[in-house]
Design a protein around this nucleic acid. Structure first.
Ligand SMILES: [Mn+2]
Ligand SMILES: [Mn+2]
Ligand SMILES: [Zn+2]
Ligand SMILES: [Zn+2]
Lengths: 136, 136
DNA sequence: ATCTTTTATGCAACATTGTTGCGTTTATGT
DNA sequence: ACATAAACGCAACAATGTTGCATAAAAGAT
């Protein structure tokens, strides 16, 4: 399904920047830092990028994969709806090239701590990505 | 051991702000957001707080527990040295009061992904803390 | 195709945090 | 107390977040 229809399905109007952001993240697994998005979308106002990201997150089309060194990485959602956000997959960041990707693997981590209630668990893995392994 | 001696042991000069930061984080498990630190340390220049945090992190005295919504949470290290940083414990954030604490529990998470090498794994749990559970 | 209404966008403005350079002050060993 | 290396405070700038408001654009109706 193309970006325009994806937007319509979530009750969002089809606008240039929304299509542009979805297409920028279009590869699927790869997450992009905000700075990269801003460069790719330099024809749009910064505020619009900001509000568009909020809208797409709200509708379950994208999610913030991780936040590190004051940089937020965004990626497409794979199976979220407007009402149900489901991001309990693993995020991986390469220490060499700083790339971030969503690893859609199911990983159950049972954690039980006395006196507190745990609702969700986020896992971030770090290491070396396949691309960087090749160039070694 | 008091803050002054902790600093000397890591080869850091004993200055007011370093002592103040260590004492601000002094409870141990609780992490503090940068904003709170800045309020507590308002007698010091912002730049000095910034550089002091870097120095204390570098020497393995404190660590960034997590980064969320553009806020960094700092906590004391429990068993780091100047050379060996060991932060592979769980971080917990309360969805109610936004408090963050280090959970010093050993949690092995084996992750094996083809084509990539994983060096470390960070786990962040979210839910309701003991304090917020009581006030319900 | 045009009109109407709702929503999105662009711009200005301000806040917070990060980051560096540099002159001054302070901590520490002698 | 002195010398010196290190730390601090201040100025300055960058990046991102955030809001209000006037203008432009999208969607549905005519
Ligand atoms: Mn993801
Ligand atoms: Mn911790
Ligand atoms: Zn890489
Ligand atoms: Zn709480």
């Amino acid at each position: 399904m193309d970006a325009a229809n994806i937007l319509r399905n979530r009750g969002l109007r089809v606008t240039k920047i929304r299509v542009a952001i979805l297409e920028a993240l279009g590869e699927g697994l790869q997450a992009l830092p905000y700075g990269d998005l801003q460069k790719k979308l330099s024809q749009f106002d910064r505020t619009t990028i900001y509000r568009t990201l909020l809208a797409l997150i709200d509708k379950g089309l994208i999610h913030k994969a991780l936040e590190e060194n004051n940089e937020s990485y965004y990626a497409l959602c794979s199976d979220c709806t407007s009402n149900l956000h489901n991001h309990n997959h693993v995020h991986f960041k390469c220490n060499e090239c700083s790339s971030v990707q969503c690893l859609h693997i199911s990983k159950e981590v049972g954690l039980s701590i006395p006196e507190i209630v745990i609702d969700s668990i986020e896992i971030t893995a770090k290491g070396t990505c396949s691309t960087c392994l090749l160039t070694h």
